[in-house]
Design a protein around this nucleic acid. Structure first.
Lengths: 171, 171
DNA sequence: CCAACCATGTAATAAGTTACATGATTCA
DNA sequence: TGAATCATGTAACTTATTACATGGTTGG
């Protein structure tokens, strides 16, 4: 249940409202952990009930600013140091590769080359983001940059692989 | 809802029981799409109700062998050619990277180097699998090999990245 | 004043996980 | 005959998605 830890992690940097968190999920975390608005507000409620976060301030328009508590920080640290990352492998695009035999060779190659294009566009998007973000040296920026580099390498790898795979199907 | 398509795809190659499918999910598809036993039996029931698969034979121990139907093949083809792969990005291990600032630099580097080790072991596992599988030239073998190559490239990339990232944190 | 944005929530549904429960067949 | 394997299913719970519903505040 890493949504919980994503929320705690973001709040560990600075207090934020549900709305603020959503923006972070849509930007910084968009390639790493996705969440819907329903989920975020729901999780904040549960975290508050559990005492891992608290409402630190209320603002205009019913805004509630949440802050992480000490038990929340402890839970976050415990997750980081004592638990193994769960790797639930589920890749729709790779699943399709398994069943490309149902298509004509030409259709299959088209699928792979379209994948290559998608990966290429993604890479361009990440490079654009990298250039346009004003990086500072708070922990989230430092480590966010590492994650972004991962994304760049992943999309580059994906593109190369897809072109290679399309080539394989020709032969 | 790609579990449905994973099941249809496997059945498109040859008829199988729920038990057979589980073995395939645990072996061939393990790095691509995971499913629990509950899910598989549940989905087979739903697919049969929808007429996308049918019970083709019954065997000992209550075994029910399912076969894909024409509407099932049509649905599979539709999924492959007319729908976009959904990319729900959720990576627990990458999420952790964002919050490494909560640890000491040494702990953070240890996390990354452990990731590198995990990736390296995974790569070795895939290479071992590749060598021990008797590949033939049915469509699932041909395309399974492409997916396996993806896995090898991914784990290699992951390992290199993790070592690079650990190095970054030193500086 | 009105559009854009800020802000929070609920309800219904779908998908996924874990645990439980049962029993037949094969083979050494 | 007993262990391993084959084989199917249900129940309870958690997690995630989609759609709906509401209203306040700011700035041009």
């Amino acid at each position: 249940m890493s949504l919980r830890h994503a929320v705690l992690g973001l709040l560990s940097e600075r207090p934020a409202s549900g709305y603020d968190l959503m923006k972070l999920f849509e930007t910084s975390l968009s390639h790493v952990w996705s969440a819907t608005q329903s989920q975020v507000y729901g999780e904040l409620g549960k975290l508050a009930d559990a005492g891992l976060v608290e409402v630190a301030a209320e603002g205009p328009r019913g805004r509630k600013e949440y802050a992480i508590t000490d038990p929340g920080r402890a839970e976050l640290r415990h997750w980081l140091t004592e638990t193994e990352p769960t790797r639930t492998r589920r890749s729709d695009s790779l699943l399709r590769v398994f069943f490309l035999g149902l298509l004509t060779p030409l259709e299959a190659q088209t699928y792979l080359l379209t994948e290559a294009e998608r990966a290429s566009r993604q890479r361009a998007g990440l490079e654009h983001a990298e250039a346009s973000i004003e990086w500072d040296d708070d922990p989230l920026s430092v480590h966010g940059r590492l994650a972004l580099e991962y994304g760049k390498r992943l999309s580059a790898m994906h593109e190369e692989w897809a072109r290679w795979a399309a080539e394989q199907l020709k032969a």
